[in-house]
Design a protein around this nucleic acid. Structure first.
Lengths: 148, 148
DNA sequence: TTTACTGCAAAGGGTTTGCATGAGG
DNA sequence: CCTCATGCAAACCCTTTGCAGTAAA
């Protein structure tokens, strides 16, 4: 998680103008761990900028992505946004649609990346590792429904 | 890759009606390794079924996905379809947009999946492991452009 | 014969674009 | 000041839905 100051410097490196809207959007994503959608970011920022529109959100998310600060995660219905740029595993619940980062396997993802870089002639820029299934509470609910 | 006969049996297990259109669509995806989009599947099937529409393609892909024969891979602009249901790594070229399956790391993905299942309370159903970057030919072109 | 798939058309909805205004460097 | 971001509206396009006719079992 970056401080506001670090964020400003990071954007200036990319010749990107820093505006209050952009800082608010950046913080809404970077200070989150729930992989928010555009709509969720919109709702979180609306309090401070009631006149902001989705077009500004989309535009800013594009800038942040090109600056390497966030990663877009396209899903079937919509994209969500990842603030954790370290190699890691996402656990995606197909029931309640929560997405959480897990520490488990972080080392394995990094090793896998190094292995791909060495053993194939593919130049890796970034990666996305998603495991889909049932989160603890939805798995419990599912088992309860099956026995009933 | 399944034979047409195996495919028919597999669909019947799911109480799914087998039609010539469905077989054509299924084969267009299952006998491919390039992760085709809906449009590409459409073009490949159009020769044999000139009257087929995209609605049928979407409908059938949904059936195949629920039958566990294929996996939808949502990307930013559109979805592509995966015929390789074994745990593996996809290499996605961000330049030419080709997606290939690689043997490298298949074992690692499987081990990672087992580890997630054991060490977290998450019930894994399937996974998607994508490495994004430059394929060999696009990487070469990129280096040539940089030195020029 | 019954069920449900195909094909056509229209709607849906996340995302992108164009442009006038306004703010950042 | 000059450039570029914001906000508003409209367009875009992938995908979904509804329905009448038709084919599978």
């Amino acid at each position: 998680m970056l401080t506001q100051q670090e964020l400003v410097e990071r954007l200036r490196e990319w010749q990107v103008r820093v505006t209050p809207q952009r800082l608010a959007i950046a913080e809404a994503v970077l200070n989150s761990t729930d992989h928010p959608s555009v709509q969720q970011i919109f709702e979180r920022v609306r309090d401070h900028f009631p006149s902001m529109t989705l077009a500004t959100i989309y535009s800013t998310l594009g800038v942040l992505q090109r600056s390497g600060l966030i990663q877009e995660l396209p899903f079937q219905k919509m994209s969500r946004y990842e603030a954790n740029m370290e190699p890691h595993v996402n656990l995606v619940c197909i029931q309640c649609e929560t997405v959480i980062d897990t520490d488990t396997g972080q080392d394995a993802v990094l090793r896998l990346r190094n292995r791909i870089s060495k053993e194939s002639h593919f130049e890796v820029a970034w990666q996305r590792v998603d495991f889909y299934g049932w989160c603890p509470s939805c798995a419990a609910a599912k088992r309860a429904a099956q026995t009933a």
